[in-house]
Design a protein around this nucleic acid. Structure first.
Length: 594
RNA sequence: CGGGGUGUGGCGCAGCUUGGUAGCGCGUCCGCUUUGGGAGCGGAAGGCCCCCGGUUCGAAUCCGGGUACCCCGACCA
């Protein structure tokens, strides 16, 4: 360490918030160089390489082959796939000297598809899985959490290519299993949750979330084993009524309900003036119609109304996922002016829908099935309609005339899981990996076809699978850290053993040098603190900060032929043991390989 | 993109309200002492006070405009 490019900091950096990020900077693993960009220093890079190595081994183990594609990509393939516009402002675009458009790839579906198209022409070339560790560029609106969200980051991204759905299913399963092994080896707890496949239209998609309060994703789980990102949760709709039953329901009636622009005021007034037998009206009896504007990637703006039970709000993330790649923007006062059929605060299904007065697309929450009766706007100021029945008075979810359903309502703790496995509860998580059965979208767009065994051209079906290396490292730093510093799992620690030289005697130094030489000869990676003229306390503090799981102190014990071995591994007992210098190498080797 | 905050030696900060030419701690360098839990004493180096403009005899400090970074939110197949 006397020559290592390393400077530990005694104080926390001012620009770091999360404990793990602070420690990574303090311990000299990384330095921030700009917003969302980081320099990797020697210790950090060693951990980085070891995380990579684990991922690489598991990729190789499922037969995936490593390649490396350029980060710099021409516009055209991304134009063909639609992502040149769909990716929006997060895409780094640039021009070369001839003025032609390029991008710094945010992921490599297009590029990888084209490489395979270039090389493969027969079903005999498949199945095929390719992967790379490549720097991705995303011009994030706001980088955050140190290494958790950066604008430039290395991702292991792999892509599978198969002739048929069964092949894709098998490739997906292999990748999924590899991911489980990777996170297991890294010592990083994760849960696989159903993810939104959104605009990409893929069939299966799962995220590996590391449960942590710092996570940016919200996911829900049931006792019975259902787990999903909130964006992907589907609503358990009540059964629809038959036409006969619906016909027997009381007719809808319009009533005066002045000064009831909000759900709360409406419920209060209705309970006072129009009480019903069998319990008071609640917000869940109302149908709330929320107005938004969709900004489509092409620049087109479209008003949209979402109809959902009044006890729910629109969850911005769920809605965004549901309408992607369009972006959701507020519905402004000016927009009301353009749509006179809309009576602010009293909008109802009477005017909503692309075939009705407003002409505005009207998407319903899946709960609004045929036979459900609602209190909702009567499209006149100060009036609501009571007992408006879906499927009789307006098209119910899923019926002809309905513009469609949308999964945009908030998920509440206690909501039933869609598979009937019990009530849901919400948690936070950090996306560590994503496996995605893409299907034929990219292959179709870019013309990736092979001849099948009958000599017919078929479009290849694909999967894509990603793991962020630095994010995994950051999550490990976060989860392992204690009050005195970092603690790395052995699989990725920057060294196997940290040898601290505590003493100025020649005998101590000699013992330290000999021990290090033996450890290296035994195949261990050693971080050796031979810094002279430093008080022992500084070295001990630094060793704890750096977080190598085993710390060996060579100092005053040398006179009796002893060194102190200290355990600082995650889940370890923190024990300090005196070990005979003569046995130290074999003892440590056993400890490390165990 | 909305809201909040911060830019002062390498790092962490004070000074700004009330203008007078910059200070503390850590780190760094030299010397002596010290060496098992962030050592002591003495000496030293190191700053375009984010940038541009304005007010003023005089601006780190007041005013205007930029810009960078951090946090919350929006955003983020």
């Amino acid at each position: 360490m006397s020559t290592l490019f390393l400077k530990t900091l005694r104080e926390d950096p001012a620009d770091a918030e999360l404990p793990g990020h602070r420690l990574l900077v303090r311990a000299g693993y990384v330095r921030r160089t700009g917003s969302g960009t980081f320099a990797w220093l020697p210790l950090g890079l060693r951990v980085f390489r070891r995380v990579e190595a684990v991922v690489r081994e598991e990729m190789d183990a499922i037969g995936a082959q490593e390649v490396l594609l350029p980060a710099l990509q021409p516009r055209e393939p991304y134009e063909v796939s639609g992502r040149w516009t769909d990716y929006g402002p997060a895409l780094f675009r640039l021009k070369d000297r001839r003025g032609s458009d390029h991008l710094l790839a945010p992921t490599h579906e297009e590029a990888m598809t084209l490489v395979v198209k270039d090389v493969c022409s027969s079903y005999k070339d498949l199945p095929l899985s390719l992967y790379q560790f490549q720097t991705k560029f995303r011009d994030e609106a706001r980088p955050r959490g140190g290494l958790l969200r950066t604008r430039e980051f290395v991702m292991k991204d792999s892509y599978s290519f198969d002739v048929d759905d069964a092949g894709l299913e098998a490739s997906y399963a292999r990748h999924r299993a590899a991911y489980v092994r990777i996170f297991d080896r890294l010592g990083l707890p994760v849960v696989a949750v159903a993810a939104d496949s959104g605009a990409m239209g893929g069939s299966a998609s799962e995220e590996f979330l590391h449960p942590t309060p710092h996570g940016e994703d919200t996911w829900v789980a049931s006792e019975g084993g259902y787990a999903a990102n909130v964006e992907a949760v589907t609503t358990l709709a009540p059964p629809a009524m038959g036409d006969d039953e619906i016909a027997a329901l009381p007719a809808a009636r319009v009533e005066d309900t002045p000064d009831t622009p909000t759900i709360e005021s409406l419920v209060a007034v209705v309970n006072e003036r129009f009480p019903r037998g069998g319990g008071a009206w609640t917000p869940a009896d109302t149908l709330k119609n929320v107005l938004v504007t969709l900004a489509h990637p092409g620049g087109e703006r479209e008003p949209l109304v979402i109809g959902l039970p009044g006890d729910r709000d629109v969850d911005p993330k769920r809605l965004a996922a549901a309408v992607a790649p369009a972006e959701v923007e507020p519905f402004e006062a000016a927009d009301f002016a353009e749509h006179p059929a809309l009576v602010r605060g009293y909008i109802g299904p009477g005017v909503l829908g692309s075939e009705r007065a407003s002409g505005i697309r009207y998407l319903l929450d899946p709960r609004v099935v045929a036979g459900t009766a609602w209190i909702t706007g009567a499209d006149h100021a100060g009036r609501h309609v009571i007992g408006l029945v879906a499927g009789r008075d307006f098209p119910a979810a899923g019926q002809e005339g309905c513009d469609g359903t949308v999964e945009a309502a908030t998920i509440a703790d206690g909501d039933p899981a869609p598979d009937g496995s019990g009530p849901l509860s919400a948690r936070r998580g950090l996306e560590m990996g994503h496996v995605f059965a893409l299907g034929r979208l990219y292959a179709e767009a870019l013309g990736l076809k092979v001849l099948d065994s009958n000599g017919k051209l078929v479009t290849v079906t694909m999967g894509s699978y990603g793991i962020g290396v630095a994010r995994a490292l950051a999550a490990l730093a976060e989860s392992g850290a204690d009050e005195s510093g970092l603690r790395w799992p052995r699989a990725v620690a920057p060294a196997d053993v940290h040898v601290v030289l505590a003493g100025k005697d020649d005998a101590v130094r000699e013992a330290g040098e000999t021990l290090c030489a033996q450890l290296v000869a035994a195949g261990l990676e050693v971080l050796y603190d031979d810094r002279p003229k430093l008080s022992p306390g500084v070295k001990f503090k630094d060793a704890e900060l750096i977080g190598v799981p085993t710390i060996v102190t060579v100092g005053r014990g040398v006179a009796e032929g002893l060194v102190e071995v200290r355990d600082r591994s995650v889940g370890g007992d923190g024990a300090r043991t005196d070990v005979a210098l003569a046995d130290a190498t074999s003892h440590l080797r056993e400890l490390v390989t165990r």
